[in-house]
Design a protein around this nucleic acid. Structure first.
Lengths: 353, 353
DNA sequence: CTGAAAGCGCTTACAG
DNA sequence: CTGAAAGCGCTTACAG
C-alpha cells in the first residue's frame, strides 16, 4: 500500500507549498487562490493522497464516525427486514457526508458497548435501533448529554430526538379496517409489553375499539413474546375459549406463522371465521394462503431520517425535539377481505354480518 | 461528558507519575512494578479514564478497527439470516480483542467504500462477506497486499485467506439424499452463475449425478437469479416439459417460495411427484406444508471464524492459506421423504419406484 | 523500574 | 492569500 504512506508533508513538498496550504485545499478553504487549489489538487489526485483519519480526528477533536447499537438477543429485530434496511438507510446517508458507521456489538451488554465507544471517543453520535420502557441506553446518553437519535419513541423524556413509525395510528387504522370487515372480537398477539412500539400499538387498538363502542376484553390481548411457538399456543388457547376471537392482529411475521398454523389446525376459514392481519410485510405474509393483510413500514427511510437528523445535530443545527414520523402503508389482502371468495362449503357457522 | 475530557496527563498528575508510566500500566507492561500498577489503576478506574482512540491509533499506527463490506443490491444476502448472523459472529469475536467494526456502505460501489476505508487508514483489515468470479474487491486487496479474509471461496488465487461452507460437498450430499429417495431427474434452480458458492454447488451436483451414472441434462439447471418470481416461472416451465423433473434443489428460501407455488399450482404432490430441497433453513422451509428438507449453514460460526483468522493475521501469526470450512447440516423433512404419508388419493401417476 | 522527549499526521489560530 | 509553529493525546525507543 505505497500510497498510504504518503503524508501531507510529502504532498506539500511535491506541490512546493506548505502543509497548511495542502490542508486548506483539501478543506476547500475559500481563502486559498483558485490557482493554488488547482495545482495542489492535481498533485493530490495524482498520488491518490487521503488524509489519515486518526490524525484528523485528533487534530479536529471529531471522529466523523457514528455508532450503531445492535440489539443483543433480539431475534425479532432480525426476522423482518428492519435491521438491514435501516442499516442501509443509515449508512448511505452518513457516507454521503463522509461519516463512517461503527457497530457496537459483542460486549456483554448493549450499554457496555455504548460506553466503550463513547469513553474512547470513537464516535460523535449514536443511533439507537429501538427502545424499551425505561431504556438504560437512552438514560445513559440522555444523562450525559451525548448526541443520539432514537429509532423509536421515548416515553420518559419529551426532548429526546426520535424517528419512528406512527405505531399508534397504524394500529388504529388496522383495527379500524378489520372492524369495517364486520369483526367485533379482535385479538392482539405477540411482542413484548416492554417495547415502546408495542405499547403504542396497544393504545391505538384500544382507542379504535373505544371509538366504535366495542368493550375492551383484556383476554383478547396476548402480549408476551415473538415466536412461532408463542403465536401457535396463544392462538389455540384463544380459539378454544367459549367466545373465540373473529379476528387477530399479529405483531410480527414470525409469530404470525404460528397463528396461521393454529387457525388451520382448528379448521377455521380465513377470513370468514377468523380474519388475520400482521405488522411487517414479508415473504410469509405475501405468499401464504390466503395472503395476509399487513401494515408495511418503511425501514430504510427510518434509518435514513435518523441519520439525517443526527448529522444536523452534530453540525450544530436545530432539530425538532420529540418524534418525527415516517410513512407506513396498509396493504389489504385476502386475509381480511370481507368479500373474499369462499372456496369451502363446510363453514361451521356464519358470522352475523 | 466530563470524563471524556480527562487525558493521560491528568491521570499522570493525579497519580504522581509520568504519562509514560500511565500508558504502560494500561498496556500491562511487565516492566512496571505491581505496586505502581495497583496505584495507577485505582486512579484510572476512579476517574473512568480511557485512552482516546484517535491518539492511540496515530501513535501506534494501528486502528484496532476492521472493515466489513456490505454487499450492495444483493437482496438475497439479507433474505436469509446469513447477514446478521455472520455480523454477530464477527462483532462478538472482534470485540473480545478490543476491535471495532466499521461498516462500508453507502458509497457508489463496494470497491469505492473499501478504497475509502483503506486509503484513509481507517482500518487494519477487512472481512468480505461473499465473492463473485473475478471479484474486483478481492483483486484490489490482493494486489495491494491489504489484509483481508473472504467469507467464501476465491477461484482465482489459492493463497487468499478464506472461510466458507463446503458448498461442493453439501450440494453433493443433498443431491445424493434425493437420489436415494428414488429421484432421477433432479433440477437445480436459483442463484447467480457469477457467485462462487453457486458454482461450487453446481459442481457438487454434477459430481453426484456422475457417480450414480445419471446423465447430466443441462435443461434441468436454471441458474439466473434469486426471487420468488424467478422460482415460480422457472419451475412452471420445467414442469411443462415433456420430461419434467421429479425433484428440485433450490438455492435459497426466497426462490423456494416461488418453486413451491408453481408445484402447488400444477397440482403435483410433494414429495411423491416432485421432491423439494433447499439451501438455508428459515421460517418458510420449516413451516411450509410439507416442511422442506434443507442444508442449514452455520452463519454465526462463519463470521466468528473469519474474525478469528483476521485477528491472527493482524497479530502476525501464521494462518492457513486457502479455504477453511465450517460445518453444515442436512435436515431431512417431509419434502424429500420417500416414505412420506400420502394424504391424497388423486395422484395422477405413480413414480416407478 | 521509571521518566523526559520525540514523534505519529493532521488542523488552525496567529502573523504577515 | 500563504506559512511557521503549536497542539491534539497518545506511545515508545532511549537513557538512567
Amino acid at each position: 500500500m505505497a500510497n498510504s504512506k504518503l503524508t501531507i508533508k510529502d504532498i506539500a513538498k511535491l506541490a512546493e507549498v506548505s502543509s497548511s496550504t495542502v490542508s486548506r485545499v483539501i478543506d476547500d478553504n475559500p481563502r486559498i487562490s483558485d490557482e493554488t487549489k488547482k495545482h495542489v489538487s492535481e498533485i493530490i489526485n495524482k498520488y491518490g493522497y487521503k488524509p489519515q483519519s486518526a490524525a484528523r480526528s485528533l487534530a479536529r477533536n471529531r471522529t466523523n464516525s457514528v455508532g450503531i447499537v445492535i440489539p443483543h438477543n433480539d431475534i425479532n429485530i432480525y426476522s423482518s427486514s428492519f435491521f438491514h434496511e435501516a442499516l442501509k438507510g443509515i449508512c448511505s446517508t452518513l457516507a454521503k457526508q463522509g461519516y463512517d458507521v461503527l457497530i457496537s456489538a459483542g460486549n456483554p451488554t448493549e450499554l457496555d458497548a455504548i460506553k466503550r465507544l463513547v469513553s474512547t471517543s470513537r464516535i460523535d453520535g449514536i443511533i439507537l435501533l429501538r427502545s424499551t420502557v425505561n431504556d438504560m441506553n437512552v438514560e445513559y446518553m440522555y444523562d450525559n448529554g451525548f448526541p443520539f437519535i432514537l429509532i423509536g419513541t421515548c416515553l420518559e423524556h419529551e426532548d429526546v430526538y426520535c424517528v419512528d413509525n406512527d405505531n399508534f395510528k397504524a394500529s388504529f387504522d388496522l383495527t379500524d379496517h378489520i372492524y369495517k370487515c364486520g369483526k367485533k372480537r379482535i385479538a392482539l398477539i405477540g411482542g413484548s409489553g416492554d417495547s415502546v412500539f408495542i405499547i403504542k400499538r396497544l393504545n391505538g387498538y384500544h382507542k379504535c375499539l373505544e371509538q366504535h363502542n366495542i368493550p375492551i376484553d383484556s383476554e383478547l390481548v396476548k402480549l408476551g413474546q415473538s415466536s412461532e411457538a408463542y403465536g401457535y399456543d396463544t392462538m389455540r388457547e384463544l380459539l378454544n375459549n367459549i367466545t373465540p376471537p373473529d379476528a387477530v392482529i399479529v405483531m410480527d411475521e414470525t409469530t404470525c406463522v404460528g397463528v396461521m398454523k393454529a387457525i388451520n389446525d382448528s379448521c377455521l376459514k380465513i377470513p370468514e371465521q377468523v380474519a388475520v392481519a400482521c405488522f411487517n410485510e414479508g415473504a410469509f405474509t405475501n405468499y401464504s394462503k390466503p395472503a395476509i393483510t399487513t401494515i408495511s413500514l418503511d425501514f430504510y427511510e427510518l434509518g435514513a431520517r435518523a441519520a439525517t437528523n443526527l448529522l444536523m445535530l452534530l453540525g450544530g443545527n436545530k432539530v425538532k425535539k420529540g418524534c418525527c414520523f415516517v410513512n407506513y402503508n396498509l396493504s389489504i389482502r385476502e386475509s381480511t377481505r370481507a368479500n373474499s371468495k369462499v372456496n369451502y362449503n363446510n363453514l361451521k357457522k356464519e358470522r352475523d354480518e
